[in-house]
């Protein structure tokens, strides 16, 4: 199998990562690790069946992760395809969107004041972005450790299904502001 074929055939791992991250975030009140890193989903969450089967669901709102529609979509086997989220790393907040298929970042802004773009300012900016990526990769590596262990992933998915089933019965959060079926968005 060529690397291009491998990249395409395993792209579902990115959607599974976002889905696992959303579940972890909801289960643990946002605290993900390493350290005290927090992840909170908000804004837009897009869900799709793996390998792009027809129907997609786009949820928009302050807390779409708490909505009944999200629980329903997960219960139908849909995965998080793209999501906006907030990461709090060492007490500093980052907002971004992540597309599961590629793990591309969107709208990732370093927490620094606009300044004169002199070399020192630019270098600091690059360091901050790379620092965030290291934390992102560490959380992603934690997912991969679980995902690539048959027994660990079996346990994780059982907990995720139990969570979805429990939330389906109790979810009484108000629906998100807009619910679209079949929406599609560009990266």
């Amino acid at each position: 199998m060529s690397i291009l074929e491998s990249i395409q055939s395993k792209s579902f791992l990115g959607q599974e990562f976002l889905t696992w991250l959303l579940w972890r975030s909801e289960e643990r009140s946002g605290v993900i690790g390493p350290g005290e890193t927090e992840v909170h989903f908000g804004g837009v969450v897009e869900l799709a069946a793996p390998f792009g089967e027809a129907e997609e669901v786009t949820l928009r709102g302050e807390n779409p992760a708490a909505s009944r529609e999200l629980v329903t979509a997960l219960g139908e086997g849909k995965l998080v395809a793209k999501a906006q989220m907030r990461w709090i790393v060492d007490g500093v907040e980052w907002t971004l969107s992540v597309r599961g298929e590629t793990l591309d970042f969107g709208g990732l802004k370093p927490p620094m004041k606009t300044g004169v773009p002199d070399p020192e300012w630019l270098e600091r900016r690059l360091e901050l972005l790379e620092g965030f990526a290291r934390v992102f990769d560490a959380v992603h590596a934690e997912f991969l450790t679980l995902r690539l262990s048959e027994s660990a992933w079996k346990s994780e998915t059982r907990q995720m299904r139990d969570w979805v089933a429990a939330r389906a019965q109790t979810a009484d959060a108000p629906p998100p502001e807009i619910v679209e079926i079949g929406g599609e968005d560009e990266a």
């Binding site: 990249i7 055939s9 395993k10 990115g14 992603h140 690539l148």
Partner: peptide, 10 residues
């Protein structure tokens, strides 16, 4: 992306 990060991880 998902595959190359997973490959590097293993």
């Amino acid at each position: 992306g998902p595959f190359t990060l997973a490959e590097a991880h293993t």
